[in-house]
Design a protein around this nucleic acid. Structure first.
Length: 338
DNA sequence: GGCATTTGACCCAC
DNA sequence: GTGGGTCAAATGCC
Protein backbone atom coordinates (compact mmCIF):
# COMPACT_ATOMS: atom_id res chain seq x y z
CA UNK A 1 0.00 0.00 0.00
CA UNK A 2 1.26 3.41 -0.83
CA UNK A 3 2.36 5.47 2.08
CA UNK A 4 -0.20 8.17 1.40
CA UNK A 5 -2.90 5.55 1.33
CA UNK A 6 -1.74 4.27 4.66
CA UNK A 7 -1.85 7.77 6.00
CA UNK A 8 -5.38 8.26 4.76
CA UNK A 9 -6.39 4.95 6.22
CA UNK A 10 -4.76 5.84 9.47
CA UNK A 11 -6.57 9.15 9.50
CA UNK A 12 -9.87 7.45 8.90
CA UNK A 13 -9.24 4.98 11.65
CA UNK A 14 -8.24 7.79 13.90
CA UNK A 15 -11.46 9.59 13.13
CA UNK A 16 -13.41 6.50 13.99
CA UNK A 17 -11.49 6.16 17.17
CA UNK A 18 -12.17 9.70 18.13
CA UNK A 19 -15.86 9.32 17.52
CA UNK A 20 -15.90 6.20 19.62
CA UNK A 21 -14.18 8.12 22.36
CA UNK A 22 -16.71 10.87 22.14
CA UNK A 23 -19.48 8.35 22.25
CA UNK A 24 -17.92 6.84 25.28
CA UNK A 25 -17.81 10.18 26.93
CA UNK A 26 -21.48 10.72 26.23
CA UNK A 27 -22.31 7.27 27.42
CA UNK A 28 -20.42 8.01 30.53
CA UNK A 29 -23.00 10.59 31.35
CA UNK A 30 -25.94 8.29 30.90
CA UNK A 31 -25.03 5.27 32.96
CA UNK A 32 -24.64 2.86 30.10
CA UNK A 33 -25.42 -0.75 30.57
CA UNK A 34 -22.62 -3.22 30.80
CA UNK A 35 -23.40 -4.45 27.32
CA UNK A 36 -23.14 -0.97 25.93
CA UNK A 37 -19.91 -0.44 27.76
CA UNK A 38 -18.45 -3.68 26.44
CA UNK A 39 -19.60 -3.02 22.95
CA UNK A 40 -17.98 0.36 22.90
CA UNK A 41 -14.84 -1.11 24.35
CA UNK A 42 -14.71 -3.61 21.53
CA UNK A 43 -15.17 -0.91 18.97
CA UNK A 44 -12.29 1.02 20.41
CA UNK A 45 -10.20 -2.11 20.65
CA UNK A 46 -10.89 -2.86 17.01
CA UNK A 47 -9.68 0.55 15.96
CA UNK A 48 -6.64 0.13 18.04
CA UNK A 49 -5.76 -3.21 16.56
CA UNK A 50 -6.34 -1.91 13.09
CA UNK A 51 -3.93 0.91 13.69
CA UNK A 52 -1.47 -1.46 15.18
CA UNK A 53 -1.65 -3.66 12.12
CA UNK A 54 -1.39 -0.69 9.85
CA UNK A 55 1.65 0.71 11.46
CA UNK A 56 3.38 -2.15 13.09
CA UNK A 57 3.28 -4.93 10.60
CA UNK A 58 0.36 -6.81 11.73
CA UNK A 59 0.88 -8.99 14.71
CA UNK A 60 -1.88 -8.39 17.11
CA UNK A 61 -2.08 -11.69 18.83
CA UNK A 62 -1.18 -10.30 22.15
CA UNK A 63 -2.80 -10.22 25.48
CA UNK A 64 -5.33 -7.43 25.66
CA UNK A 65 -3.61 -5.78 28.54
CA UNK A 66 -0.32 -5.82 26.79
CA UNK A 67 -1.89 -4.56 23.64
CA UNK A 68 -3.19 -1.59 25.43
CA UNK A 69 -0.02 -0.99 27.20
CA UNK A 70 1.67 -0.92 23.88
CA UNK A 71 -0.12 2.26 23.14
CA UNK A 72 1.76 4.19 25.68
CA UNK A 73 5.21 5.43 25.85
CA UNK A 74 6.63 5.17 29.27
CA UNK A 75 7.99 8.63 29.08
CA UNK A 76 5.17 10.07 27.13
CA UNK A 77 7.20 10.75 24.09
CA UNK A 78 6.44 9.35 20.72
CA UNK A 79 8.36 6.30 19.84
CA UNK A 80 10.26 5.49 16.76
CA UNK A 81 8.89 3.17 14.17
CA UNK A 82 11.28 0.47 15.15
CA UNK A 83 10.16 0.63 18.67
CA UNK A 84 6.62 0.49 17.59
CA UNK A 85 7.13 -2.60 15.58
CA UNK A 86 8.36 -4.26 18.67
CA UNK A 87 5.38 -3.05 20.55
CA UNK A 88 3.06 -4.84 18.24
CA UNK A 89 5.11 -7.96 18.24
CA UNK A 90 6.19 -9.12 21.56
CA UNK A 91 4.84 -8.58 25.00
CA UNK A 92 5.89 -11.82 26.50
CA UNK A 93 8.58 -10.58 28.75
CA UNK A 94 7.55 -8.85 31.87
CA UNK A 95 10.38 -6.41 31.74
CA UNK A 96 9.37 -5.24 28.31
CA UNK A 97 5.83 -5.10 29.44
CA UNK A 98 6.72 -2.85 32.28
CA UNK A 99 8.65 -0.55 30.04
CA UNK A 100 5.60 -0.05 27.92
CA UNK A 101 3.23 0.60 30.72
CA UNK A 102 1.38 3.87 30.97
CA UNK A 103 2.65 6.19 33.60
CA UNK A 104 1.02 9.04 35.34
CA UNK A 105 1.71 11.00 38.42
CA UNK A 106 -0.45 12.48 41.08
CA UNK A 107 0.57 14.83 43.77
CA UNK A 108 -1.37 14.32 46.90
CA UNK A 109 -1.28 16.38 49.99
CA UNK A 110 -2.09 14.56 53.13
CA UNK A 111 -4.28 16.28 55.62
CA UNK A 112 -2.29 16.89 58.69
CA UNK A 113 -5.22 15.80 60.75
CA UNK A 114 -5.70 12.39 59.33
CA UNK A 115 -2.72 10.93 61.09
CA UNK A 116 -1.44 9.17 58.04
CA UNK A 117 2.19 8.91 57.21
CA UNK A 118 1.65 8.87 53.53
CA UNK A 119 -0.92 8.72 50.81
CA UNK A 120 -3.55 6.32 51.90
CA UNK A 121 -4.71 3.19 50.23
CA UNK A 122 -6.47 3.38 47.00
CA UNK A 123 -8.97 0.79 46.01
CA UNK A 124 -6.22 -1.62 45.12
CA UNK A 125 -4.05 -3.65 47.31
CA UNK A 126 -0.38 -2.90 47.02
CA UNK A 127 2.65 -4.69 48.31
CA UNK A 128 5.77 -2.78 49.01
CA UNK A 129 8.71 -4.38 47.30
CA UNK A 130 11.44 -1.86 47.63
CA UNK A 131 12.66 1.42 48.94
CA UNK A 132 15.45 3.52 47.57
CA UNK A 133 17.27 6.60 48.56
CA UNK A 134 17.07 8.88 45.60
CA UNK A 135 19.90 11.14 44.71
CA UNK A 136 19.06 14.68 45.67
CA UNK A 137 15.89 13.72 47.42
CA UNK A 138 15.49 14.13 51.10
CA UNK A 139 13.17 11.19 51.47
CA UNK A 140 13.45 7.68 50.11
CA UNK A 141 11.21 6.48 47.35
CA UNK A 142 8.98 3.53 48.03
CA UNK A 143 8.03 1.01 45.42
CA UNK A 144 4.77 -0.86 45.43
CA UNK A 145 3.29 -3.43 43.15
CA UNK A 146 -0.10 -4.95 42.97
CA UNK A 147 -0.65 -7.67 45.51
CA UNK A 148 -2.18 -9.77 42.77
CA UNK A 149 0.82 -9.78 40.50
CA UNK A 150 1.27 -13.50 40.82
CA UNK A 151 -2.23 -14.79 40.93
CA UNK A 152 -3.75 -12.42 38.45
CA UNK A 153 -0.79 -11.41 36.40
CA UNK A 154 -1.33 -7.81 37.33
CA UNK A 155 1.69 -5.67 36.62
CA UNK A 156 0.55 -2.38 38.02
CA UNK A 157 3.09 -0.64 40.18
CA UNK A 158 3.34 2.65 41.92
CA UNK A 159 6.10 4.73 43.41
CA UNK A 160 5.63 7.04 46.31
CA UNK A 161 8.02 9.90 46.78
CA UNK A 162 7.66 12.39 49.55
CA UNK A 163 8.20 15.96 48.53
CA UNK A 164 11.32 17.65 49.77
CA UNK A 165 9.68 21.02 49.96
CA UNK A 166 6.51 19.97 51.65
CA UNK A 167 6.64 16.69 53.59
CA UNK A 168 2.89 16.52 53.54
CA UNK A 169 2.92 16.24 49.79
CA UNK A 170 3.49 12.89 48.17
CA UNK A 171 4.12 12.34 44.54
CA UNK A 172 2.58 9.07 43.56
CA UNK A 173 3.61 7.69 40.21
CA UNK A 174 1.49 4.91 38.86
CA UNK A 175 2.80 2.61 36.21
CA UNK A 176 0.64 0.23 34.33
CA UNK A 177 -2.95 -0.55 34.84
CA UNK A 178 -4.59 -3.21 36.88
CA UNK A 179 -5.27 -6.42 35.08
CA UNK A 180 -6.71 -7.66 38.32
CA UNK A 181 -9.39 -5.05 38.57
CA UNK A 182 -12.27 -7.19 37.55
CA UNK A 183 -11.47 -9.62 40.30
CA UNK A 184 -10.37 -7.15 42.84
CA UNK A 185 -12.28 -7.64 46.03
CA UNK A 186 -11.03 -4.30 47.15
CA UNK A 187 -12.67 -2.59 44.24
CA UNK A 188 -15.49 -0.25 45.06
CA UNK A 189 -18.66 -1.97 45.86
CA UNK A 190 -21.75 -1.12 43.92
CA UNK A 191 -23.27 2.06 45.07
CA UNK A 192 -26.44 2.06 46.98
CA UNK A 193 -29.51 2.44 44.81
CA UNK A 194 -29.94 5.91 46.14
CA UNK A 195 -26.43 6.90 45.26
CA UNK A 196 -26.68 5.31 41.86
CA UNK A 197 -29.73 7.32 41.20
CA UNK A 198 -27.99 10.44 42.25
CA UNK A 199 -25.10 9.71 40.02
CA UNK A 200 -27.35 8.97 37.16
CA UNK A 201 -29.24 12.15 37.58
CA UNK A 202 -26.22 14.27 38.14
CA UNK A 203 -23.65 12.88 35.86
CA UNK A 204 -20.36 14.62 35.56
CA UNK A 205 -21.09 15.47 32.02
CA UNK A 206 -24.32 17.16 32.81
CA UNK A 207 -22.74 19.00 35.63
CA UNK A 208 -20.00 20.25 33.45
CA UNK A 209 -22.47 21.38 30.88
CA UNK A 210 -24.65 23.09 33.37
CA UNK A 211 -22.09 24.73 35.51
CA UNK A 212 -20.11 27.54 33.96
CA UNK A 213 -17.21 27.00 36.23
CA UNK A 214 -17.01 23.34 35.47
CA UNK A 215 -17.49 24.09 31.87
CA UNK A 216 -14.53 26.29 32.17
CA UNK A 217 -12.56 23.45 33.61
CA UNK A 218 -13.38 21.41 30.64
CA UNK A 219 -12.29 24.10 28.29
CA UNK A 220 -9.03 24.26 30.13
CA UNK A 221 -8.33 20.65 29.56
CA UNK A 222 -5.81 20.15 26.93
CA UNK A 223 -5.36 16.95 25.10
CA UNK A 224 -2.58 16.72 22.70
CA UNK A 225 -3.97 14.67 19.91
CA UNK A 226 -1.71 15.71 17.15
CA UNK A 227 -1.08 12.95 14.76
CA UNK A 228 2.61 12.55 14.89
CA UNK A 229 2.90 8.85 14.91
CA UNK A 230 0.24 6.40 14.14
CA UNK A 231 1.22 3.74 16.56
CA UNK A 232 0.25 5.62 19.64
CA UNK A 233 -3.30 4.66 20.00
CA UNK A 234 -4.73 4.29 23.39
CA UNK A 235 -8.40 3.63 23.68
CA UNK A 236 -10.83 6.13 24.93
CA UNK A 237 -9.78 8.12 27.91
CA UNK A 238 -11.17 11.19 29.36
CA UNK A 239 -9.96 13.00 32.33
CA UNK A 240 -11.44 15.42 34.66
CA UNK A 241 -9.10 17.49 36.71
CA UNK A 242 -9.45 16.31 40.23
CA UNK A 243 -13.12 17.00 40.41
CA UNK A 244 -14.61 14.23 38.34
CA UNK A 245 -13.69 10.75 37.45
CA UNK A 246 -15.05 7.97 35.40
CA UNK A 247 -14.01 5.02 37.39
CA UNK A 248 -12.90 1.80 35.97
CA UNK A 249 -15.26 -1.05 36.31
CA UNK A 250 -18.08 1.36 36.59
CA UNK A 251 -20.21 2.81 33.95
CA UNK A 252 -20.75 6.15 35.37
CA UNK A 253 -18.99 9.34 36.18
CA UNK A 254 -19.20 11.07 39.44
CA UNK A 255 -17.48 13.75 41.32
CA UNK A 256 -14.37 12.21 42.70
CA UNK A 257 -15.09 13.65 46.04
CA UNK A 258 -18.34 11.79 46.07
CA UNK A 259 -16.38 8.64 46.62
CA UNK A 260 -15.43 9.86 49.99
CA UNK A 261 -17.29 8.94 53.01
CA UNK A 262 -20.59 10.64 53.28
CA UNK A 263 -19.39 12.34 56.36
CA UNK A 264 -17.15 14.38 54.18
CA UNK A 265 -19.84 15.73 52.05
CA UNK A 266 -20.10 18.86 54.00
CA UNK A 267 -16.56 19.87 53.54
CA UNK A 268 -16.00 19.97 49.93
CA UNK A 269 -14.43 23.19 49.15
CA UNK A 270 -11.03 22.65 47.74
CA UNK A 271 -10.76 19.17 49.06
CA UNK A 272 -9.26 16.89 46.60
CA UNK A 273 -10.04 13.29 46.54
CA UNK A 274 -7.49 11.43 44.59
CA UNK A 275 -8.77 8.56 42.52
CA UNK A 276 -5.81 6.65 43.76
CA UNK A 277 -6.68 7.00 47.34
CA UNK A 278 -9.33 5.61 49.51
CA UNK A 279 -12.31 7.31 50.88
CA UNK A 280 -10.65 7.61 54.20
CA UNK A 281 -8.27 10.22 53.05
CA UNK A 282 -8.89 13.68 51.90
CA UNK A 283 -6.20 15.66 50.23
CA UNK A 284 -6.28 19.33 50.35
CA UNK A 285 -4.66 20.13 47.11
CA UNK A 286 -6.22 20.66 43.79
CA UNK A 287 -3.08 19.76 42.01
CA UNK A 288 -3.61 16.73 39.96
CA UNK A 289 -0.99 16.14 37.42
CA UNK A 290 -1.53 13.61 34.81
CA UNK A 291 1.64 12.94 33.06
CA UNK A 292 2.38 10.62 30.25
CA UNK A 293 -0.84 8.94 30.68
CA UNK A 294 -1.52 6.40 28.06
CA UNK A 295 -4.14 4.39 29.60
CA UNK A 296 -5.74 1.12 29.29
CA UNK A 297 -9.10 -0.01 28.23
CA UNK A 298 -10.41 -0.05 31.71
CA UNK A 299 -8.68 2.81 33.28
CA UNK A 300 -11.35 5.11 32.08
CA UNK A 301 -9.50 8.26 32.59
CA UNK A 302 -11.08 10.42 30.03
CA UNK A 303 -10.33 13.65 28.42
CA UNK A 304 -13.26 15.85 27.98
CA UNK A 305 -11.91 18.20 25.46
CA UNK A 306 -13.79 17.45 22.33
CA UNK A 307 -12.40 20.42 20.50
CA UNK A 308 -9.10 18.87 19.85
CA UNK A 309 -7.52 18.11 16.60
CA UNK A 310 -9.07 15.65 14.34
CA UNK A 311 -7.30 12.66 15.56
CA UNK A 312 -6.77 11.40 19.05
CA UNK A 313 -3.82 9.41 18.09
CA UNK A 314 -0.29 10.42 18.36
CA UNK A 315 1.39 10.42 21.66
CA UNK A 316 -1.94 10.88 23.29
CA UNK A 317 -0.08 12.78 25.85
CA UNK A 318 -2.37 14.21 28.38
CA UNK A 319 -0.95 17.44 29.53
CA UNK A 320 -3.35 18.66 32.03
CA UNK A 321 -2.09 21.62 33.86
CA UNK A 322 -2.66 21.80 37.53
CA UNK A 323 -6.15 22.91 38.22
CA UNK A 324 -6.77 25.39 40.92
CA UNK A 325 -10.16 25.15 42.40
CA UNK A 326 -11.58 28.33 43.65
CA UNK A 327 -11.92 28.00 47.40
CA UNK A 328 -15.19 29.78 47.05
CA UNK A 329 -16.45 27.36 44.53
CA UNK A 330 -20.05 26.53 45.37
CA UNK A 331 -19.71 22.80 45.75
CA UNK A 332 -23.01 22.75 47.43
CA UNK A 333 -24.83 23.86 44.36
CA UNK A 334 -28.02 21.91 43.78
CA UNK A 335 -27.33 18.68 42.06
CA UNK A 336 -23.64 18.74 42.56
CA UNK A 337 -23.29 16.28 45.36
CA UNK A 338 -26.78 15.91 46.53
C1' DG B 1 0.83 -20.32 58.03
C1' DG B 2 0.00 -16.60 55.21
C1' DC B 3 0.93 -12.17 54.05
C1' DA B 4 3.44 -7.75 54.31
C1' DT B 5 7.66 -5.17 55.02
C1' DT B 6 12.60 -4.48 55.10
C1' DT B 7 16.88 -4.30 52.98
C1' DG B 8 21.06 -5.64 50.59
C1' DA B 9 22.13 -7.32 46.15
C1' DC B 10 21.51 -7.43 41.46
C1' DC B 11 20.19 -5.74 36.78
C1' DC B 12 20.03 -2.40 33.34
C1' DA B 13 19.74 2.03 31.02
C1' DC B 14 22.19 6.12 30.45
C1' DG C 1 30.49 4.11 36.60
C1' DT C 2 26.27 5.69 38.51
C1' DG C 3 21.59 5.78 39.77
C1' DG C 4 16.98 3.99 39.48
C1' DG C 5 14.18 -0.03 39.62
C1' DT C 6 13.48 -4.78 40.96
C1' DC C 7 14.40 -9.16 43.20
C1' DA C 8 14.38 -12.19 46.90
C1' DA C 9 15.78 -13.76 51.43
C1' DA C 10 15.04 -12.53 56.09
C1' DT C 11 12.04 -10.94 59.33
C1' DG C 12 7.81 -9.35 61.55
C1' DC C 13 2.92 -9.27 62.32
C1' DC C 14 -1.69 -11.16 62.75
Amino acid sequence: MESWEMQVLADELAQGMEKAMQLRFHLCATSPSEDEHLLLQRIISTFEKALCILKGGGHVGVAPAAAHESSISADGSSRSDDTNKNLCKDYGEASKKRKLQPTWTEQVKVNSGNGLEGPGDDKYRWRKYGQKDILGAKYPRSYYRCTYRQGRNCWATKQVQRSDEDPTVFEVTYKGTHACKQFNDAAPQPESPKKQELQSNNSCYDQIEQNPMLSNYRSNLRVDTEVSDIQEMPPAYFSFPSTFACHEGENDCYPISAQADDSHLGAYSPLFYSPATSGSNCFSTATYQMRDYGGHDSTDIMSANASTNNSPIGGMEFSIDPVHIDPNFPFNIPGFFT
